[in-house]
Simulated scan of single mutants.
Amino acid sequence: MDIAIDRVTDLVIRLRAVEVKEGMTDPASGSNPIDDGSVDILVSGTDYATEDELRSMIDGLNDDERADLLALFYVGRDDMEPEEWRDAVRFAREREAAGEGAATTILRTPIASELLEEGLASLGITPDLSDA
């Protein structure tokens, strides 16, 4: 695998932070978010990744790393078996070339962090996610 496990782990932790955020609980309240203390979101702060930051992180990976990340996602989603790793990477490269890249695919999936973890586990890799 061309992507470092630590890099995948960092992405999983950051994805978790984004996945737990809720949408607005009262979108038609008509009140001012400042007056409400911004209670319409679960978590807000500079320590939490936004989707834009995650997209930048994923897009900042080199081609081989992005292909591996997407292949992990496919294996975790049971689209492919761990024994088909090379095929998964090849398919991931094809998806990237077709414009359905890793960032788009991963960020539009609500349980992406779980799928990446399952992909690693399927390959026999147990990352340290104790900081999550």
Rank of each mutant, 00 (worst) to 15 (best):
A103T: 07
R86D: 15
R108E: 13
R90F: 13
E81V: 08
W85D: 03
G99K: 07
T105F: 11
M80C: 00
G101Y: 03
E100R: 04
I106F: 12
A88C: 10
M80K: 11
T105W: 08
W85V: 01
A102L: 09
L107M: 09
A92W: 04
I106N: 04
A98M: 14
D79I: 05
F91D: 15
A103P: 06
P82T: 07
R95M: 15
E81N: 12
E81I: 08
R90E: 14
T109V: 06
R108D: 09
R90T: 14
G99N: 10
E94N: 08
D78M: 00
P82G: 08
A92G: 09
D79G: 10
A103Q: 03
G101W: 03
D87H: 09
E100W: 00
E96F: 12
A103W: 03
A103V: 08
T105N: 05
T105C: 08
T109D: 12
G101M: 00
A97D: 12
A88G: 00
R108W: 07
E83D: 11
G101S: 03
R90P: 00
W85Q: 03
W85A: 01
A88M: 04
E100P: 00
R108P: 02
E100G: 00
E84G: 05
G99I: 09
R90H: 13
I106W: 11
A98T: 11
T105Q: 15
E84D: 12
T105G: 04
A98G: 12
E96T: 13
T104P: 03
L107I: 11
T109R: 12
V89L: 02
M80S: 06
D79T: 07
A92R: 05
T109E: 12
V89P: 03
V89A: 03
R95E: 15
L107S: 12
A88T: 07
P110K: 10
A102C: 09
I106T: 00
R93T: 07
P110L: 08
G101T: 05
A98Y: 13
A102V: 07
G101V: 02
R93C: 06
G101C: 05
A102E: 01
